[in-house]
Write a protein that binds this DNA or RNA. Sequence first.
DNA 1: GGCAAGCTGACAGCAAGCTGACAATTCGGG
DNA 2: CCCGAATTGTCAGCTTGCTGTCAGCTTGCC
Lengths: 223, 223
Amino acid sequence: MTTDMRVLAVEDDPRIAKDLHAALSAAGFRVEHSRDGEEAWFLGDTEEFDLVVLDLGLPALDGLAVLKRWRANGRTMPVLVLTARGTWQERVEGIEAGADDYLPKPFRMEELVARARALVRRAGGHAAALQEAGDLSLDTNRMGVALRGVPVQVTALEYRLLAYLMQHRDRPVPPTELLEHLYGDDDAREANALEAVIARLRRKLGPGVIGTRRGFGYYLEGA
Amino acid sequence: MTTDMRVLAVEDDPRIAKDLHAALSAAGFRVEHSRDGEEAWFLGDTEEFDLVVLDLGLPALDGLAVLKRWRANGRTMPVLVLTARGTWQERVEGIEAGADDYLPKPFRMEELVARARALVRRAGGHAAALQEAGDLSLDTNRMGVALRGVPVQVTALEYRLLAYLMQHRDRPVPPTELLEHLYGDDDAREANALEAVIARLRRKLGPGVIGTRRGFGYYLEGA
DNA sequence: GGCAAGCTGACAGCAAGCTGACAATTCGGG
DNA sequence: CCCGAATTGTCAGCTTGCTGTCAGCTTGCC
C-alpha cells in the first residue's frame, strides 16, 4: 500500500490554518491539523509524519516546548517553524531546539510550500507525493496517474482535471468551476468540452472512478 | 567540534567578511574566502566544500547566478544564502535556485553559525560526483558525459541541460522551466531554441535517453 | 411525456514538438 | 586583431496526437 506524504500543521489562527491546509494539500500533502500544543505533541509523538509545520504561539503548550519534547523522545521528523516574533534569539533558540527550518510571519504560501518540499526531499529521500482516492492515485511530483497501482497514461489537460477533483475530493465540483479552472473564464468554450474530457478519462479509467451527481458536479469515487 | 569542515564564504563587504571568518573559524570550520562571483563560482565548481555561505549582492557575477550554475553543473553541497533584499519572491527564487537555507541581513553571527552547523549535520557526507540515469552517466567533476560507459562529447549548454534533467530526474521538467534555467528569463529567446538543443542531444545520444511527455516536459528515461 | 443535464463516437483543426538548413555568435589560436 | 571552427539561435516546414465541436443519444426528474 502506497503512502501519502503526511504533514502535521500546528496553527491556532483559523484563517492561517485554512490557507495552510489549502496550499499544502494542493502541493500533494495529506494534511492533519491541530490547533493546540498538547494535542499537537500527542499526535506528533504517536503517529508518523513526513513533516511538521509548527507555529510557535500556541495555547496550552508553547510550540518550542512541544518541539523540544519531541526531540527529547527521539522523534526526528523535519520540523518547519513559523513565528511572528522575529528576533534572532528566537530563531537560534528554535534551531537549537531541533527545528530544521524557520519562516517568519508574514510569509507567502508559495514560499512555505517551496520550503516544505525542500525539507521533505532532504529528509525522507525521494519519497513520492501521492494522493489517493479509491483505486486512483496521483503522483503530483511525477505528474503520473495510477489505477490500483497500474500506471495509466493521461494527457496534461486530463491530469489537471484529475488533480483538481483530487484536491476537492470532499465535495462534488460543479462543471462551471471546472471549466473556469481548466481554461480561463475569459476564454469561452462550449460547455461540452468538459464533458468530452470526462468521457475520455472514463474510457481510460473504467467505471467507478469519476462519479457524477446530476446538478451538483463531478467527484472521485471512494474518497 | 574537531572535524575538519571546509566552508566557502562568498562576501564582498570586507567588514562582514571579516566577521564571517572570525565566527566560522571559531566554530571549528576551515574558511576559504572569496569576494567576487566569478572566483567563487570557479572555486565552488572545482573544489570540494562541506558548506557554502553565499551573499547575493556580488560584483562580477550575481550570487543567484553562481548558485544556479553550480546546481546546473550538478554540484550538490549545501548552500546558505545571505541577502539584504528581503522580499518573498527573492527567497522563493533562492530556494528554487537550489539554496538549502536562507538568512536575511542583518543577522547575528550566532544565528549564522547555528544554521551552518545544522546544514552540515543534515548534509552528512560529501555528494557523489557520478550521477546516473538509465544508460546515461554524468561526471559532475570533469563535466563529462558517458553512454553505457562510452564517453560522449557534448557542449557546455548541452551539459547544463543534461545536468538539470539529471538533478530533477524524478519528474518531467516543463520547457518553461528549462528555458529559465538555461538562460535567464530576462534574456528572451524563441521557445524553439530549447527544442533545437534537445534535437542535437538526441542525435548524439540516440533514442531512449531523453524522453518527452507532451504537455508535461522532458525527462531522462530509465530513472 | 417532455425537458434538461449529461454521455459518446467521429472528426477536423490546431498546437506542441521535431528536424534540417542556415545565419549569427562565440572562442581559441596564431 | 583576425581567421576559421565550433557552438548556438532562428526559421520554415513537417509530424503527431491532443482537444473542441458537433450530432445524436441516454438518463434522471418533474
